[in-house]
């Protein structure tokens, strides 16, 4: 009875992690795109008298994509900001209690992200149907719906990832980001 459920969760976990990593890679390329676009505008405006009229909107657009495409991977890697000194301490004396608290926190987090997804979905539908855009007509405009869709999908994926952490909690939770600058100056 339990085994097929566990297998299912494992498969779901693999799939969700894969999607998170993929979205993260796309978000990463957008960071590079951001550097290039802003520099293009600076050069085109300063030296060729021809500013890129959509620079402002494109920057806004890419910020949303960077944040929401990468958020699931942040969740997956336990890098969402938290203060877990108490939990770490507790797990040395009362490991089972600490584990229960961890699972509860992830469950609550899943619930919150589900609320976010629930809040954004109607926005996406409305923007998609009305073809609503931002920016100034004749200057530069971009549609709203991809933004709302990105937020919705991101929140949905985060919900699943948190949920997986409830069912299959990670054995090791790092208090801070340690992998940073791993190879520099070495």
């Amino acid at each position: 009875m339990l085994r097929p459920i566990l297998t299912g969760v494992r498969a779901l976990s693999r799939l969700a992690n894969g999607v998170a990593i993929g979205a993260n890679a796309v978000g990463t390329l957008i960071v590079l795109g951001l550097v290039l676009i802003v520099n293009y505008d600076v050069v085109a405006r300063g030296f060729f008298n021809a500013p890129f009229r959509g620079a402002y909107e494109v920057v806004q657009f890419s910020m949303v994509l960077i944040v929401f495409l990468q958020l699931p991977d942040v969740v997956r890697m336990n890098r969402l900001t938290r203060s877990d000194g108490f939990l770490t301490l507790l797990s040395t004396t009362r490991p089972r209690l600490a584990d229960t608290i961890r699972r509860t926190i992830n469950l609550v987090s899943a619930a919150f992200m589900a609320l976010v997804a629930y809040a954004i979905w109607p926005e996406f539908v409305e923007m998609y149907e009305t073809k609503d855009f931002f920016g100034v007509p004749g200057i530069f405009t971009a549609p709203w719906w991809p933004i709302k869709l990105a937020i919705y999908l991101s929140a949905f994926l985060c919900t699943i990832l948190f949920f997986i952490k409830v069912v299959r909690p990670d054995q090791k939770i790092e208090p801070v980001r340690l992998d940073e600058h791993a190879e520099e100056n070495s």
């Binding site: 990463t28 960071v31 960077i66 929401f68 990468q70 991977d73 980001r177 940073e180």
Partner: peptide, 10 residues
Amino acid sequence: LLETGHITAS
């Protein structure tokens, strides 16, 4: 770039 994205998102 990856690190930047993670820091930005969080």
